[in-house]
Lab assay of single mutants.
Amino acid sequence: MGFKLLSKLLVYLTASIMAIASPLAFSVDSSGEYPTVSEIPVGEVRLYQIADGVWSHIATQSFDGAVYPSNGLIVRDGDELLLIDTAWGAKNTAALLAEIEKQIGLPVTRAVSTHFHDDRVGGVDVLRAAGVATYASPSTRRLAEVEGNEIPTHSLEGLSSSGDAVRFGPVELFYPGAAHSTDNLIVYVPSASVLYGGCAIYELSRTSAGNVADADLAEWPTSIERIQQHYPEAQFVIPGHGLPGGLDLLKHTTNVVKAHTNRSVVE
C-alpha cells in the first residue's frame, strides 16, 4: 500500500471513529477524501466538511520552486461564519470567499490569524475590503508590521502568557507558548472536538522541520505538551499544512522538532 493511500485511509478511519463516538456532533463529509496538494491548482481553494458547521479550507501556493498546501478553518456561528487564517495570499483568499459563498452561503463576518507569517495573514486586506472584521493577538499584529505583512485590524486580548485561553464565538483560542513562531495560536472547536494546530503542528508525513527561522526550538516541545494537557479530548487535529489526523500529530511534531534540534547540535 502506497504512503499517500495509507495517509488518506488514516484520515478516513479517524473521521469514521469520530462519527461513531459522537453521532450528534459529527456529520463528516462523505463526498470524498481530504484534498491534497496535487489536486488543488494554485489560485483555487477546496472546502472539506469535518463536522456539522465545521470545515477546513485548503489552498496551495508556490514557494521556492515548489507547491505547498495550506489549511485553515471555518466555523459556523449562528447565521454567520468565523474564518481562521487566510488562504495564503490575496488571490487565494478572494477564491476562498467565493467558494464559501458557493458552498455554504453564509457571510464571513470575523477572521482570526493564528500567527504573523504570510500563509496566515496574506489576504487580510481582501477580507477587510469584503467587510470582514480581522483579528490577531497584539504580538501577531506587531510582528506582521515588522515583517511588512498585512496586519489584522483588531487585537485579541488575554493571550499574552503561555497557557492563556479565551473564548471567541464558537471557538476557544489558546496560546501554548512559542513553537513554530513566538505568537502562534491554537484554535479548538469544543462542539466538535476539532483542534486546529496551525503551523505549530505537523502532518504525519512530514519528517523535516522546514521553516524554523522564527521558531523557538527549545520551547516548542513544552508548548505541545500544554496543548495535549489542555485538549486531551480532541479527536480531529488539523495541521497548518497537509493531512489531518488525531492527537498523534502532536507527538510526531515533537519528535521531528527534537530530531532537528539534535542534528543542529551535532553539526
Rank of each mutant, 00 (worst) to 15 (best):
M1H: 06
F3N: 14
K4F: 06
K4Q: 07
L5T: 15
L6I: 09
S7H: 11
Y12G: 09
Y12I: 11
L13C: 15
L13I: 15
T14M: 08
S16C: 15
A19L: 15
A21R: 13
A21V: 14
S22F: 08
S22K: 12
L24N: 15
L24M: 14
F26W: 15
D29S: 09
S30N: 13
S31I: 07
G32A: 11
P35K: 08
V37W: 13
V37C: 08
I40N: 07
I40F: 14
P41F: 08
P41Y: 08
P41G: 15
E44K: 11
R46G: 10
Y48G: 07
Y48K: 11
I50H: 09
D52W: 08
G53A: 09
G53P: 05
G53F: 08
V54H: 02
V54N: 04
S56A: 15
H57T: 01
T60S: 13
T60C: 05
Q61G: 04
S62H: 06
F63G: 04
F63K: 04
G65W: 05
P69N: 15
P69D: 15
S70E: 03
S70V: 03
I74T: 06
R76T: 09
R76L: 12
D77C: 03
G78W: 06
L82S: 01
L83I: 09
A87N: 03
W88M: 00
K91D: 15
A94P: 03
A94E: 14
L96P: 03
L97Q: 00
L97C: 00
E99V: 14
E99I: 12
I100G: 01
K102N: 13
K102E: 12
G105I: 00
G105A: 12
L106V: 11
L106Q: 11
L106N: 08
V108Q: 00
V108I: 10
A111W: 04
V112R: 05
V112Y: 03
S113Y: 02
T114V: 00
H115E: 00
D118A: 10
D119V: 03
R120V: 02
V121E: 01
G123Y: 04
V124E: 04
V124Y: 02
D125T: 09
V126L: 09
L127M: 01
V132S: 04
A136H: 05
S137I: 08
T140R: 04
R141D: 02
R142M: 12
L143Y: 10
V146C: 09
G148K: 10
E150M: 02
P152Q: 02
E157V: 12
S160D: 13
S161R: 13
S162G: 14
D164L: 08
A165L: 14
V166K: 10
G169N: 05
G169S: 06
E172M: 03
P176D: 01
H180Y: 07
D183P: 00
L185W: 02
V187C: 01
Y188L: 01
Y188A: 02
P190H: 06
A192L: 07
A192D: 06
S193R: 14
S193D: 12
G198C: 06
C199W: 03
A200H: 02
A200P: 00
A200F: 03
I201H: 06
I201M: 06
I201C: 00
I201Q: 00
Y202F: 14
Y202T: 15
E203L: 00
S208K: 10
A209E: 06
A209F: 07
N211G: 03
N211H: 03
N211D: 05
D214I: 04
D216R: 07
A218M: 12
A218V: 13
E219K: 08
E219R: 07
R226F: 01
Q229H: 14
Y231D: 00
P232K: 14
P232S: 10
E233H: 12
Q235C: 06
F236P: 04
I238K: 01
G240F: 05
G242P: 02
G242T: 05
L243R: 15
L247G: 10
L250G: 02
L250R: 03
T253N: 04
T254V: 14
V256T: 05
V257R: 02
K258V: 13
A259K: 12
A259I: 11
H260T: 11
N262M: 12
N262F: 10
R263E: 15
V265G: 12
E267C: 05
